[in-house]
């Protein structure tokens, strides 16, 4: 929902904290998730993720969430799917070139990111979207990445 997602951006700092706590919780759940099997968890978790993130961010389920680098403004709502900042077509009033009634997703992203602790993450160049991850759970992917990283550090 447009109004909700704009509200979220205005509270990006709080959502950053919530997300960090949520990530820790998910990582703690890793042994359980692994026991049940990530494959088996994929569908229900993706459904739940779609529900929550759809409501909050108008999430498009690209499967490679970059919200923490984009001021909690989902960049897949950009009609050009830009992952690295606003195009040159942003209107003088800050609205989108393609959808004149919509605030530019990257105007919000810039504003949101500057309120966050990790305000410099917006400056990192994002990789192109992998379209084959569309519809999969970014949460589960993130947990596996974090766990893998932690284990590689232990070695």
């Amino acid at each position: 929902m447009y109004k909700v997602r704009r509200w979220v951006v205005r509270h990006s700092r709080s959502f950053e904290t919530i997300y960090q706590l949520f990530e820790k919780l998910l990582v703690k759940l890793h042994p359980l998730l692994a026991k049940i099997g990530y494959q088996r968890m994929e569908k229900p978790v993706a459904k739940l993720e779609q529900l929550c993130k759809g409501l909050l961010f108008d999430c498009k389920m690209c499967g490679q969430c970059a919200l923490s680098s984009t001021g909690m403004s989902c960049s897949m709502n950009c009609p050009k799917n830009l992952r690295n900042g606003p195009c040159g077509g942003v209107r003088q009033n800050g609205n989108c070139e393609v959808k004149p009634q919509m605030r530019c997703v990257w105007m919000d992203a810039w504003q949101g990111s500057q309120a966050m602790l990790s305000s410099d993450r917006i400056h990192i160049v994002q990789l192109p979207v992998s379209h084959n991850l569309q519809g999969t759970s970014a949460w589960l992917r993130k947990v596996r990445q974090v766990v893998q990283y932690q284990e590689s550090k232990k070695r």
Binding site: P86, G88, V90, G94, C104, W106, M107, W110, H123
Partner: peptide, 15 residues
């Protein structure tokens, strides 16, 4: 390409 004349102006140099 770069467009310094479109908002958000303070983000443009970073972009």
């Amino acid at each position: 390409a770069s467009n310094p004349f479109a908002p958000p102006y303070d983000f443009r140099p970073y972009r």
